[in-house]
């Protein structure tokens, strides 16, 4: 009897369409974020995260409409990340029905933005997204640094120190993505996840690398994460959220069934 560990499917949205992992889904639903969000809600997702990867500024309104539509019929927490740079960006997302926003690069360029956002909207809706990559050589004690621009640009900042700083500045949650594992389907970077989770007082969402259901459970048990995020294993309809929860429960993890 305690707090359940969360499973959070993530939808990468480009110009209002989900861009990966749709090949086995009924073609009518393929790529429609509202349809996919509905399905995840039915399957028992604990939250849903939208990552807006729309490149052009002009098309950013589309994610607002997606969130509005989903929030009108799906009554679980919704997070929107990608391109959140100003207090006004946050306000728009919250007004559209998002419960939380993910701040990534903007926090690196201007850490005070996180403080201002938490003061204005409350820590409960500020998720700081951290993209981390291992920089230590084999044999050295593990060390990770943060990267921006989808993992392309090193920021030269230690990931653990950065996570602590973001919590001090008001982050209510950390979304931690391993750039080494993202897209590999080899599982989370468990030492990284554990190091960050043990270093901060707020919940940590593990992300990057999930290829099977055991990886999710590993993230909780070995990575000490409070929640696990995955995209492609759910989009491809390889596994349902329900199956993921059953698997986690079978390994002794408390989940909302």
């Amino acid at each position: 009897m305690s707090l359940a560990k969360r499973i959070i499917p993530c939808l990468d949205v480009d110009n209002g369409r989900v861009v990966k992992g749709v090949k086995f889904v009924d073609i009518r639903d393929a790529g429609d974020p509202v349809e996919i969000a509905r399905r995840y809600d039915r399957e028992g997702a604990d939250e849903i995260t939208f990552l807006d990867i729309t490149a052009t500024h002009d098309n950013r309104d589309t994610i607002v409409h997606v969130v509005e539509q989903v929030a009108s019929e799906v009554f679980i927490p919704l997070t929107v990340g990608g391109g959140i740079r100003t207090l006004d960006d946050i306000r728009r997302m919250l007004n559209a029905g998002a419960d939380k926003v993910g701040i990534n690069s903007a926090a690196v360029f201007n850490p005070d933005f996180v403080r201002e956002a938490a003061e204005r909207f409350g820590s409960q809706c500020i998720v700081v997204a951290i993209d981390a990559k291992k920089v230590s050589a084999p044999g050295e004690p593990s060390r990770w640094e943060i990267f921006t621009h989808g993992g392309r640009k090193p920021a030269g900042i230690d990931a653990i120190a950065w996570a602590k700083k973001m919590v001090d500045f008001g982050a209510g949650e950390i979304l931690l993505t391993s750039m080494d594992r993202d897209g590999t389907r080899e599982g989370f970077d468990l030492p990284l996840t554990r190091a960050i989770s043990e270093a901060v007082t707020v919940p940590v969402i593990a992300s990057g690398g999930v290829g099977n259901l055991d990886h999710l459970a590993d993230g909780i048990i070995d990575g000490k994460a409070d929640a696990v995020l995955a995209a492609s294993i759910f989009h491809f309809a390889e596994y349902t959220i329900g199956q993921a929860k059953q698997q986690m429960a079978s390994r002794g993890i408390e989940v909302r069934l």
């Binding site: 009897m1 305690s2 707090l3 359940a4 560990k5 969360r6 604990d46 820590s123 409960q124 209510g172 949650e173 043990e198 007082t201 707020v202 919940p203 940590v204 000490k224 409070d226 929640a227 909302r256």
Partner: peptide, 17 residues
């Protein structure tokens, strides 16, 4: 701390009974 000595996070965030 929970029963196993793991520290519990604040805020209390998520689905609880």
């Amino acid at each position: 701390k929970d029963g196993n000595g793991n520290s519990l996070k604040i805020p209390h965030m998520g689905w609880n009974q």
